[in-house]
Design a protein around this nucleic acid. Sequence first.
DNA 1: CTGAAAGCGCTTACAG
DNA 2: CTGAAAGCGCTTACAG
Lengths: 336, 336
Amino acid sequence: MTAAGGRPTLEAVARRAGVSRATVSRVVNGSPKVAEEIQVRVRQVVEEMGYVPNQAARTLVTQRTDSIALVLTEQANRVFSDDQYFPGIIFGVSQVLEDADKQLVLLMAHSDAGHERIERYATGGHVDGVLIASMHGADPLPATLARRRIPVICGGRPLGRTNLPYVDVDQAGGVATAIEHLLAGGRRRIATIAGPQDMVAGIERLAAYRNALRDSDRRSIVAVGDFTRGSGAVAMRQLLADDPQLDAVFVASDLMAHGALRTLREAGRRVPEDVAVIGFDDVEMAQFTDPPLTTVRQPIVEMGRRMAEQVLRLAAGEQVDHSVVLATELVLRDST
Amino acid sequence: MTAAGGRPTLEAVARRAGVSRATVSRVVNGSPKVAEEIQVRVRQVVEEMGYVPNQAARTLVTQRTDSIALVLTEQANRVFSDDQYFPGIIFGVSQVLEDADKQLVLLMAHSDAGHERIERYATGGHVDGVLIASMHGADPLPATLARRRIPVICGGRPLGRTNLPYVDVDQAGGVATAIEHLLAGGRRRIATIAGPQDMVAGIERLAAYRNALRDSDRRSIVAVGDFTRGSGAVAMRQLLADDPQLDAVFVASDLMAHGALRTLREAGRRVPEDVAVIGFDDVEMAQFTDPPLTTVRQPIVEMGRRMAEQVLRLAAGEQVDHSVVLATELVLRDST
DNA sequence: CTGAAAGCGCTTACAG
DNA sequence: CTGAAAGCGCTTACAG
């Protein structure tokens, strides 16, 4: 007995080993109540024949797929700028899933049809749980999945009223520390380059900047980018036009900060003498900009790990905390 | 009739629509020989009940999984440096698979056990084909899979003697153009920072550098990195110690070139006046370094796309070209 | 054009 | 401890 692909089946192994399919199944799945001697014989035949269980057949009966989907609904410019966010999340998630012997299915939506396709796939019983890495606006996808009883964990606090479980970093705390540092350094006109205002990270970092300045009586000077270098360069030009006297800028991502540094250089402003710059992320690149970048570190890989751990708990039927919030930290370098 | 997950089955739809399971199956799968009227009714019931076919059951009978695996066997430092290589490959692959309605399963090996796990998974009938994004040394995995009749496409020419199909860029041509440009600019002592010598991209770019210099009678000056910024910074220090008079350096990746630029700045060397620098990749960052980086552009996303197209052909039983080689191009900026 | 039936390769109560 | 048997939810010749 050989499956269509030419691969041996349980049946074939059982026949060769002189036992029943049930017994082979038990040995393969590590059930303890099989006689030692039989276990040895079966394992040997499995090895000889190169038997590997057919996952589809197994899933059909167990109702478990042993895979987790990671959804990335993001425009191309960000997924494929050299932003470390997505690779970091993927890396963290895959570490945890590998240890748990689960598979990672990557679901990217490049188009609107893609969005619908993802919903269909995730509700189609293909996966035991879903991770949503980043959302624009109040994406209905996580709520839809949750309603269908599919375990879901969001990366970043979901917008809108919902009580979906999520993992996030302490955005407000990180920004507050950054602004305090600038104020303590005597900076008087502190601008910001915000992230996109349909994403929670963009919204919260801007709100935190405003709060911190309000407390200190400074006025806020704002330009908005989309987390890419190019948008940071453009936003910096706008800020310089708005307020040529500005002496500091908090930038909501390191990539945008890199773009801002180029604009400042072109405009003849020295960093940090004329303008102090603080980024957000602490990607490897931040150590190599000119000057090296002071920035708020967020633990991206750890965020991926925690997301994966949470969804595995849900898939196992356990309860999880409604939110997990990871600490951020100001890393001082030469741009302030 | 409702499946364990609470989802409706074919059976349930058939009953509600007053037809057989076979008929519902035909409608769902778009078979043309079903009466128009019945099609309409079945589709309506499918909609009402939110029926989605169970993939495991379908796979079990069709022997197709509609998924493709992408294997990333790489150390953490590279996957999680902000190298655009892996995200670019993932992005290109996922575009093509999305259009073909196939799923992308990401297989990363973080450990040795991971390597074996990947082999087990790929041979376990979970996927219709396998893409291997990057290999160290003469990895036996692709050949093992090919022997098992599993469609495989390699990213980059595989090392060792094998005739596995692959997609690659014109490494030699790109490097040759870069060196010619340096020679034409009157540079006399041209060093290189090579990539890791157990990877084909590292090996081929170094070999092409040596060939180009041999033709011009210059001596070669070599340091080796691992494609990360940090390794580029260290390698540049070694080169300056080896030959303080060097006036150009070809760096096998943009990230390493970024590291090299920082070392040159620290050493008081002006770029390009004292030392010309050329990178390889053309990531977004290359436009933002100080000075902006001249580099050899390789079409990474396109490479991912072509890999996916090739593996889909193999999975469909078609023949594919033994190799697809994409053009590279020298992009001139201010570092030369 | 439509339906009854076989079968894909497993797991798991249920007996013994 | 072991085996016979049912059943997971589909697709697809085969008849009609």
